[in-house]
Amino acid sequence: MRRLLILVSALMLCMATASFSSAQLINGAGATFPAPLYSKWSYEYAKQTKIKLNYQSIGSGGGIKQVMAGTVDFGASDAPLGAKELKEGGLVQFPMAIGGVVPVVNIKGIAPGQMKLTGEVLADIYLGKITKWNDKRIADLNAGVALPDEKITVVHRSDGSGTTWIFTNYLSKVSPEWQKKAGFGTAVNWPAGVGGKGNEGVATYVKRIKNTIGYVEFAYAVQNKLTQTKLKNKAGSFVDPSMESFMAAAESADWKGTPGFGVILTEQAGKGAWPIAGATFILVKANPSECANAKEVLKFFDWAYKNGGAMAKALDYVPIPKNVFELMEQAWAKEVKCASQPVWGK
């Protein structure tokens, strides 16, 4: 027992002394979707600057909650906050990357990109109104494709998620009935189907159970070689999910006119736009209590805007266009203040 105590106190002493010499640590938490990208950026940034940026994916809602509670230096969310929420929470919001949510299926004999769906059909599948794969409405869209006479098993997320927010936001836009029955949010009351935890859970179900449909983030579908579908966009053409079609959705958005830059990229009008695209956002306090950390956060994201594009593309994320991030940095200078002094600025 005594030996244990000595060991413990020695260990604590070690840590106390070491803590003074360790480099600065910045903590962030939130959305799962951009986590691989942020960890890649922070890994490279730590090599160059000795500043450690610890990002943990706990979910978008968690990111919002923790930054408000002040337990982390910044939060991350896939679901943009509105102007009112930003004001109430005393937060500043800016987008960091763009991605997309893709429907994935597991039907024998169907190749990736082979099946075509429309928003209305997708919504009715998720509402439990279309129950068979050879339903006339699916068959009409997919002439010449052999569809099985099998029940559809719908898979959705069981946990709250920014992916769900983007997906249900899209369904609400294309189907009034979905809007009425389920609505949109990071978690909704699903009319049908089974729930998987995380993208992993959804993908596992879709892979294992035959005749399923689910939705996952694009990077995830690519990594796991899932069978994605085509979707009909607002302009009326069937598009494949890809970096280009997400970019097309981002380009047609009105960044400047949206308060807090909280643009919603679902069902955008662009000709080649993928209809279920979304940006992922960073949230910082407008009046941070730890000014030094706040400055380091902004410095990091400035670095990421300017140098992180190639890394983002390598991981299947679309970087923020230059004209957009310049807008963001102007907003930082105006809105993020410490003791009424702007934190950002030359």
Partner: peptide
């Protein structure tokens, strides 16, 4: 995701890392 020698900062543990990694893509 980094070394941490300060008891008042977030700290990695094997179990939480298992949880994150097993759920990861």
């Amino acid at each position: 995701s980094f070394w941490n020698f300060n008891l008042t900062e977030p700290t990695a543990t094997l179990t939480v890392t298992i949880f994150n990694y097993a759920m990861g893509p």
